[in-house]
């Protein structure tokens, strides 16, 4: 960041965040012997009623938990994985009773759909993709985008599920000739898709036609940026990035999230906000999630921190609970709750 940009970065004073803005709603433990890797909230239909359920993923098992009246959770389905470990849950929006998972060792090798057969409620898994998968994201309108391969041999595919999660349709997007790191949908523009690449470009596609519309080179200060969320407003694109590989700087400490504004017509961009840790907090970005204008990150210190991107500062800090570091953080898609997980399978649900 240049000196001019320093002036618009809002570093909060120590007392400007409120730890009380996160209230514990419920918690449960997934008694798996393997390491907990992801958590997500999904709508699931049982006996004709749609319920907000929690999906937990350990390396060798994925479980679906349904809510009971007493703020407790009951495990209702499990899918087992004996050959390739689970890396992440990939929620697909607007389709009920289906969740996707990415499997692999460090890099994604398979994407599978997890579902239940309607007659006997038995758990099933279907292999959707296999290969050298670099990025995957579930989109609105029952779509799943993935990129397979690198550089010139890359294929970018959009798979559309039927309403019942069954038969599907596939479309190719024009590859950008540079390896894709992450995808992000543009909120409110269901035909626009963004991707970040290994050479610090943000690429923009038209999902309806498969066209590659623009490449936007962003600041080289941070490599391997992850795009979490994008919004289009008044002819500009607002993009929320995180920088897991960023080095600490004296001026800002470790940057956690950055809000960029892009003019898609001219491919010019500008940093408008850099979210850093409040005074007294240490650590680097481990993983994070953004919902609307609220961003949450797990730090290497084992703490979770939350930023309001409209206010421009950190609003809550959640230190490790019961002496155990946090390792997962996700916003719920079914309500305004924050899901926080620990490696041993403990899941805590907070109201923000």
């Amino acid at each position: 960041y240049s000196t001019e940009q320093n002036e618009i970065v809002d570093l909060p004073a120590c007392d400007s965040w409120n730890p009380g803005s996160l209230q514990l709603v419920s918690k449960f433990k997934n008694p798996s012997s393997s390491c907990s890797v992801d958590v997500s909230a999904v709508w699931w239909e049982r006996a004709g009623a749609k319920e907000p359920c929690i999906i937990t993923a350990c390396e060798d098992v994925v479980s679906l938990w349904k809510p009971l009246d007493t703020l407790q959770w009951e495990k209702v389905h499990t899918w087992h994985f004996t050959e390739v470990p689970v890396l992440q849950i990939v929620p697909v929006h607007d389709v009920y009773n289906l969740i996707c998972v990415a499997l692999g060792n460090l890099e994604i090798r398979e994407i599978r759909a997890l579902l239940c057969s309607s007659g006997d409620e038995n758990e099933k898994q279907v292999l959707l993709k296999s290969g050298n998968i670099k990025a995957v994201l579930g989109l609105t309108k029952r779509r799943l985008v993935s990129s397979i391969g690198t550089f010139c041999s890359q294929q970018v595919q959009v798979l559309t599920f039927a309403e019942d999660g069954g038969s599907k349709d596939e479309q190719l997007l024009m590859p950008p000739d540079e390896t894709i790191l992450t995808f992000a949908e543009v909120q409110g523009m269901q035909d626009a898709l963004l991707g970040t690449t290994t050479v610090n470009n943000i690429v923009i596609w038209n999902l309806r036609t498969g066209q590659l519309l623009k490449k936007v080179h962003i600041d080289d200060s941070y490599q391997a940026s992850i795009c979490h969320r994008a919004y289009s407003e008044m002819g500009l694109l607002f993009v929320v990035l995180s920088h897991p590989c960023a080095k600490e700087s004296q001026a800002f400490g470790s940057p956690m999230f950055q809000l960029l504004v892009i003019n898609p017509k001219t491919a010019q961009s500008l940093g408008v906000l850099l979210c850093c840790l409040p005074e007294g907090q240490a650590g680097r970005f481990l993983e994070g999630d953004v919902k609307d204008h609220i961003a949450a990150a797990v730090l290497t210190s084992g703490t979770i921190a939350v930023w309001d991107l409209l206010l421009g500062h950190c609003t809550a800090v959640l230190p490790p609970v019961s002496g155990q570091n946090w390792s997962l953080v996700k916003w719920s898609d079914t309500d305004s709750h924050l899901l926080a997980g620990q490696k041993d399978g403990n899941i805590f649900i907070y109201r923000y």
Partner: peptide
């Protein structure tokens, strides 16, 4: 820095880029 540095802005950027980009 201001949005003036970003050049001319178009509210219909998505449609315009789609009509300009190769099919």
């Amino acid at each position: 820095c201001s949005t003036a540095d970003l050049g001319p802005i178009s509210l219909n950027w998505f449609e315009e880029l789609s009509s300009e980009a190769p099919p």
